[in-house]
Design a binder for these strands. Structure first.
Lengths: 241, 241
DNA sequence: TAGATTGTTAATCGATTAACAATC
DNA sequence: TAGATTGTTAATCGATTAACAATC
C-alpha cells in the first residue's frame, strides 16, 4: 500500500527542507504546496503527494505548519541522527571537502580522514584526525559510521571500497571515475549486503554538457553563435502565463 | 519520428564510449550489445535501442565494429570539438579541479580560471592562466567557450552565473549549493536563452545517503548495528571461511 | 542452411500530471 | 456559507523491457 519514497522523492524532500529553513528565517509560519512547488520547480500536486507518501499532514485550508514540516522532514531524512562520515583520500579533492562549509551548515561532520601516505597522517589534527588507511576498519566499527566519502586515485578505488564495505560503511559518495557497484562485490550467496553508491563523475558531467551545448548549436534556426544569430525560435514559458 | 536522445541516453552513450576504449586497449575488434549492456548495467535491448536512436548501425550477426563505434560515439558526443572550459573560483575545490587528472584523460581542458581575489591572479600560470573575474566576458567571447565550472562561495554564485550567461556560456557545472536555474534568469520575452546547469550538490548527496542508510537500518529483520546483530538476515561470508 | 544478433514493434511498468471530492 | 487547499484517485506520459521478424 504505502510505497517507500523513491530516490527522486527523497531528493525533493531534502530540497523542501532547505527552502523551509530559509522561509522560517524570513518569519513564515505556514506554507502552501504551491509555495514549495515554485521554489523547488515542481507542481503543487507533487509536493502534496510527496508529503502524503511520508504521512505528513496538512490543513485543508491552512496549508502546512512550517515548524511541524521542518521537524517531520528532519525526522524522515534522519536529521536527528548525528550525520557522521569518514573521508578516504586526502589529496586535492579530499582536502577541499574537509573544509567544505556546506557540511557544517547541514550538520554533516567528517569525523576522520584516512590516507595511505605517511606524510599526510596527523592524528592530532583538529577538528578531525587524519589516520592511516590501515586503521579504518577499527575506527569505523568503534564509531558506528555508516557513510563514507571516497576521494582517492582511480587506481586505489576498488581496494578502498572493499575495505570500507568490510568495515561496515553502507553509503558511499564516490569521487573517482571508477564505477563502484555493490552488486557482485557485496552479494554473498544468501545474504546480500545492500549499500548505496552515489557516483559524482565530474568528467561524465562535463561531457554531457558538451553534448547538450553542441546539440543546441547544431539545431537549425537555433544558434546563438558569434555571427549575430540569436538563440531560439519558440519562446518556452514555464511560470505565470 | 526520431526523438532526440534524452539525458539518460546521453549518459549511457558516454559510458559505452569509456568501456569501448578500454576494450580496444585489450585488443577487441568487435563488440555485442550484451557485452556493453553488462559493462554499463543495462539490458542488451537498451544498448541496441540507444544506438539505433543515434543511427549507429551494427551487423546482423557480427555485432558492432569497435573502431566505428568509438568514432561514431565520439562524433555524437562532440568529442571532435575541442572540449574547452573555463573555471570560476580558485578556492579549494576550484584548485583541486585545475589539477584533476580525469579531465586530461577525457580530453577536457580548463583553458582559464577566474577569481576576484587579486592575490590569486596569475596571468602567466601554466598550463592555464588565472585571471580577474572582470575579464571573463572578453575571454569567453574571444575563445568561444560554451561550458564553464562554477566553484565560488554560495554568496557569489548568482552574480557569477549571470555574468557567465551574459558572456555566452551555455553549459554549467555548478559546485555551489545554490540552485542555479536558467529558466527565469535567461528567458527574454520572445527569445529564451537555453542553457543547461548540472548541479553537483554534495551536501544533498550526503543527506540522501544518510536517509537511505538509516532506512535500511530501520527495516525489521535487516540490521547491522552495534549491538551484535549482524548484517542482513544472515551473516555474509565472502573471503572468510 | 542453421544459428546468432540486430533493429523495431508491442507490452509493461512507473512516475508525473490532472482532476476533483472532502473539508476546514 | 463560500472559498481555498488538501489528499487521493484516475488519466497521461515516457521510458524500460520483452518479443520477434529480418537477415547476415
Amino acid at each position: 500500500m504505502d510505497h517507500q519514497p523513491n530516490k527522486a522523492v527523497i531528493l525533493r524532500l531534502a530540497k523542501y527542507l532547505r527552502v523551509l529553513k530559509k522561509l522560517k528565517t524570513l518569519g513564515f509560519v505556514k506554507v502552501f504546496s504551491n509555495n514549495l512547488g515554485d521554489a523547488v520547480g515542481v507542481t503543487p500536486a507533487v509536493v502534496r503527494k510527496d508529503f502524503s507518501l511520508i504521512e505528513i499532514p496538512g490543513n485543508k485550508r491552512g496549508g502546512y505548519n512550517i515548524d511541524v514540516l521542518i521537524e517531520d522532514l528532519g525526522t524522515v531524512l534522519g536529521k536527528e541522527h548525528s550525520q557522521e562520515v569518514v573521508l578516504v583520500g586526502c589529496g586535492k579533492i579530499g582536502s577541499a571537502l574537509m573544509e567544505y562549509r556546506e557540511f557544517q551548515k547541514e550538520g554533516i561532520k567528517i569525523i576522520a580522514a584516512f590516507d595511505s601516505d605517511p606524510a599526510k597522517i596527523d592524528p592530532q589534527r583538529q577538528p578531525a584526525p587524519i589516520l592511516d588507511i590501515e586503521e579504518i576498519a577499527e575506527f569505523v566499527r568503534e564509531h558506528g559510521v555508516l557513510v563514507g566519502i571516497i576521494a582517492v586515485p582511480d587506481s586505489a578505488a576498488a581496494a578502498v571500497f572493499d575495505s570500507m564495505v568490510d568495515a561496515g560503511i553502507r553509503g558511499f559518495l564516490n569521487f573517482t571515475s571508477v564505477d563502484l557497484k555493490c552488486i557482485g562485490k557485496c552479494d554473498s550467496e544468501d545474504c546480500p549486503i545492500e549499500c548505496t553508491v552515489h557516483n559524482v563523475n565530474i568528467g561524465l558531467e562535463i561531457e554531457n554538457l558538451f553534448y547538450l551545448v553542441n546539440m543546441r548549436h547544431k539545431r537549425p534556426g537555433c544558434r546563438d553563435t558569434d555571427d549575430g544569430v540569436q538563440p531560439c525560435p519558440q519562446p518556452r514559458r514555464r511560470s505565470a502565463e
